[in-house]
Design a protein around this nucleic acid. Structure first.
Length: 279
DNA sequence: CGGATTTGACCCGCGC
DNA sequence: GCGCGGGTCAAATCCG
């Protein structure tokens, strides 16, 4: 089901109206929500070529709530991220279309922990770089992805990012870039790649959540107001990504609906569902 | 000169 | 066990 090959334009009047209504406010809200939930003023970059973006969520990285005894996270966003992982934050216990991990998986985690401990004795492992292995089982960080139609790969979302890698991706003519947030110990990662199916589409994947306010100071949403709003497009979901449903998206960003952006997501979700049903 | 980017090497997980 | 592909590191380089 990886690629449904669906590609069409959303022509919903509601969507268009919503988009024209107060795109600045909604984007502002959206971007704020990507952060720590702290109020952030976002300088509209005029780079977001499409509004709204199609939002995707990586369900492969969900995790059960029982987050047992995970050692220190790689970065401080963790308590919060644990909540998000199962898309079922405490405030909105309504279940999403994405299920929580099973006990089985929890058991696997346990086994893995044991295996990791055994590896501690391997001297080779203490070599060079290295990631936290040992008891530090791989942290499952919540991911959040969305597509935008833009000629520019790295969209300015108001945060400061440092590029730490670039890799060629198999079956894709465009390289994937890796960025890390430079905000004080934040550690949020961002992956940017251009879709091979539609080269005008940029897929941005956030990993983790910002633990600090957006560093860029206020110039409000002026840029948004001047920004050209184009018809939103729908693109087939990438492999390992699935379109988020309204409910799961809402549980990620509960306050989003209050700002109207959710309407657009709803439309996108409905169209995607219809496409799935027709298959 | 300090911070950001580039890029080759390395590590790790996964599938065969 | 091995090869492949994705992700990360860090030295070199670039740039303001």
């Amino acid at each position: 089901m990886a690629n449904m090959g669906f590609s069409g334009e959303i022509t919903s009047a509601a969507t268009t109206a919503a988009a024209e209504a107060s795109e600045g406010d909604k984007w502002d809200s959206f971007l704020n929500l990507l952060g720590a939930g702290v109020h952030q003023d976002f300088v509209a970059p005029a780079l977001f070529d499409s509004y709204p973006p199609l939002i995707l969520e990586d369900i492969l990285h969900e995790q059960d709530t029982n987050q047992k005894l995970l050692p220190s996270p790689p970065f401080s966003a963790v308590p919060e991220s644990s909540e998000c992982l199962n898309n079922n934050p405490p405030e909105t216990p309504n279940s999403s279309s994405i299920s929580s991990l099973s006990n089985e998986e929890a058991a696997n985690d346990e086994q893995q922990t044991k295996a990791d401990e055994e590896q501690d004795e391997d001297p080779d492992k203490t070599r060079k770089l290295l990631k936290p292995k040992k008891n530090q089982k791989k942290e499952r960080v919540p991911r959040f992805a969305f597509m935008t139609k833009s000629e520019i790969d790295h969209l300015d979302d108001g945060y400061r990012w440092r590029k730490y890698g670039q890799k060629a991706v198999k079956n894709c003519p465009f390289p994937r870039s890796y960025y890390r947030c430079t905000g004080g110990g934040c550690g949020v990662k961002k992956r940017v790649e251009r879709s091979s199916e539609d080269t005008t589409v940029v897929v941005t994947t956030y990993e983790g959540r910002h633990t600090h306010p957006c560093p860029i100071t206020s110039r409000g949403s002026i840029g948004f107001a001047q920004q050209q709003v184009v018809q939103p497009h729908m693109y087939s979901p990438l492999e390992n990504l699935t379109t988020t449903t309204t409910s799961s998206f809402d549980s990620w960003f509960p306050s989003l609906g209050q700002h109207g952006l959710l309407q657009d997501i709803v439309v996108a979700d409905q169209v995607m569902r219809q496409a799935e049903e027709q298959m």
